[in-house]
Design a protein around this nucleic acid. Structure first.
Lengths: 356, 356
DNA sequence: TTGAAAGCGCTAACAC
DNA sequence: GTGTTAGCGCTTTCAA
């Protein structure tokens, strides 16, 4: 990168052939190259440590073999498994990943601009916090740019989308509690009233509500604390529940659906600090299943976010598009969350009453 | 990216000027461009939605304004704060980041090759698990390629290195326990015997040992369990301690220096399952300070890894190199860990004996 | 089977 | 001030 780089011309001269011949052997078009020449060229390439300039190649092929990965919360380590999944399929196919973090729509648009000028072959957009503003993505589609979107819910079914079944996760989590015999099921939701709204939060919350109502119970407003997906939010929510029901402990929720495991960890801590036993005094179920979920006290019953799969599915769709052209119709794939029972919900509630 | 792209030539024609004039206004060399023409050009650029081809520009400028970020454990979310730190300084400077994960030396070499052929302007290598094999990095330096290394300990002081004071972290953690009055301090180390060795593990362990010996005590082998930096490793280590000292509980460590908070969380769980109270029965101090450390039960006393700073320091050095040329001498910066006392070590040990 | 030459889209002398 | 032009390093017809 420093001193004068050796070019295909140098190789050609040294090997006593033309540049086009070198190009042919390097690109495997050696159908029409005698193996003697081929041999010679390869030797020289080795000798000179020749490294083809991919930029120059991209210039003429008008492809860069790189895709842009745009996400809006680099602090959220949830995106790590996504990258991982994307990487697993794109790397073997010879693609590179350029990362761009774009915390808001403005910077997302800017990121798209620069990545396009960088000639990336396609995009994957992934939202941890889904927003509804996506006009620029529709325009991007209209420009014919290949891309797929993870967790973004764009209102255009000509755009490939990997979606997460947040509603189902909230519903299943709550059903589990219901099936265990619980009837007083509170919830610490995500930021359901934020602007722009967080779809995951709204959907998980609806899941809770509908499971309860579908069971013939009432989803009481006093059973709801609105959280913010942070550890602290989870911690504080418990405090709010406690003071809200301080005067009538009997009516306090005996089970909690907490919309994220981050908050659930905070809640577990608060419950412990308050001297409440989980699951005996209060059961807890979360969503997310980060690596630590198995080692909380008690271990969290939860539903795992399908992030690696989201990444690899998106990458597959994009790769297909890039290699075989745009498919006739876009896909809209909804991934569901895998339930794992651990300790935080305990067994049947009220505890063993029916068995004893 | 799809249809025939509009080029600088199109803009020039439409504006009735030459390409070089367009180039000048686009690159801010408008010292010698009349503002009337400038205006006109800008309008046309707008009209045509002209997007300069950065590849073509890179081609002639022989710079790409992108740097390669190579790390070897994409699963380890520790690298997130590093990216964040790097991003914070490189993004504003107009640089892009290309990610490459390289789990072993072979793939690291391959990644370097492709990134070089992609003409990245420089590299940052970051190791979560430091290895000692780095010959290829020395060669890279000899090729004049700008790069800086995080947590890699390359034996060449002409290479810029951001290092972490693992020894100091182990030492400080143990000192804290000692200062609290503990004399039976066990440790769950990282993989100190792995091949290749994990420097962080070895150093943190030495820190433990030297703190103890420096205090006039003996670093007894039976106080050591070798872990592996996993949650499960931490969980299992506690079981091993318990059975090792089953017959003589008095001699069992009353405090534990655990070389990573991941393991510490596992250990806390195991301790809880075994009915041992932390910190009353056994104190725990870890290293890492991930976001959850504040919400473990009990909250972890630990030392924070300086990852964001490592990232931004590395980026600054690289940026300086890229803009002002290689500095006369390389830097070797050692970052220390910030101590945070929380609940897992409790107060003076033996508990309040001297005060009562 | 091999080579010559025309670009890919842009920048930067250099000329006018 | 503005335009002409020679490449940057490579691929790819097309001819030989």
């Amino acid at each position: 990168m420093r001193q004068r780089t050796t070019t295909i011309r140098d190789v050609a001269e040294r090997a006593g052939v033309s540049v086009s011949t070198v190009s042919h052997v390097l690109n495997g078009n050696d159908g029409h190259v005698s193996s003697a020449v081929r041999q010679r060229v390869l030797e020289v390439v080795e000798d000179l440590k020749y490294r083809p300039n991919a930029i120059a190649r991209s210039m003429v092929k008008r492809k860069t073999a790189t895709i842009g990965l745009v996400f809006n919360e680099i602090e959220n380590s949830l995106f790590v498994p996504v990258i991982d999944g994307v990487n697993d399929v794109l790397q073997p196919a010879g693609y590179h990943i350029v990362l761009a973090s774009a915390p808001d729509v403005r910077s997302e648009i800017a990121a798209i601009e620069t990545l396009r000028s960088q000639q990336v072959d396609g995009f994957i957009f992934m939202a941890l916090s889904a927003r509804f503003a996506t006009d620029h993505l529709v325009r991007l589609k209209e420009d014919g740019v290949p891309f797929v979107v993870i967790n973004r819910y764009v209102d255009d079914d000509d755009i490939d989308q990997i979606l997460l079944d947040d509603w189902g996760a909230g519903y299943s989590a709550t059903r589990h509690l219901l099936d265990l015999g619980h009837t007083q099921i509170g919830t610490v939701s995500g930021p359901i009233y934020s602007e722009p709204p967080r779809r995951s939060a709204v959907e998980r919350h609806r899941g809770w509500q509908q499971a309860i109502e579908g069971h013939g119970l009432e989803a009481r407003p006093e059973w709801i604390i609105v959280g913010d997906y942070t550890y602290e939010g989870g911690y504080l929510a418990v405090g709010q529940f406690l003071s809200r029901f301080a005067a009538r402990e009997q009516e306090r929720p005996r089970a909690l659906f907490i919309a994220s495991d981050i908050m659930a960890l905070g809640a577990l801590k608060a419950l412990h600090d308050a001297g409440l036993r989980v699951p005996q005094d209060i059961a807890v179920v979360g969503i997310g299943d980060p690596p630590f979920a198995q080692y909380t006290i008690p271990a969290l019953t939860t539903l795992a976010l399908p992030m690696p799969e989201a990444g690899s599915r998106a990458a597959h769709i994009l790769l297909d598009w890039l290699t075989n052209g745009k498919p006739a119709r876009a896909q809209r794939i909804t991934l569901s969350f895998a339930f794992t029972a651990r300790e935080s919900c305990g067994a049947r509630f009220p505890a063993r009453s029916s068995e004893s």
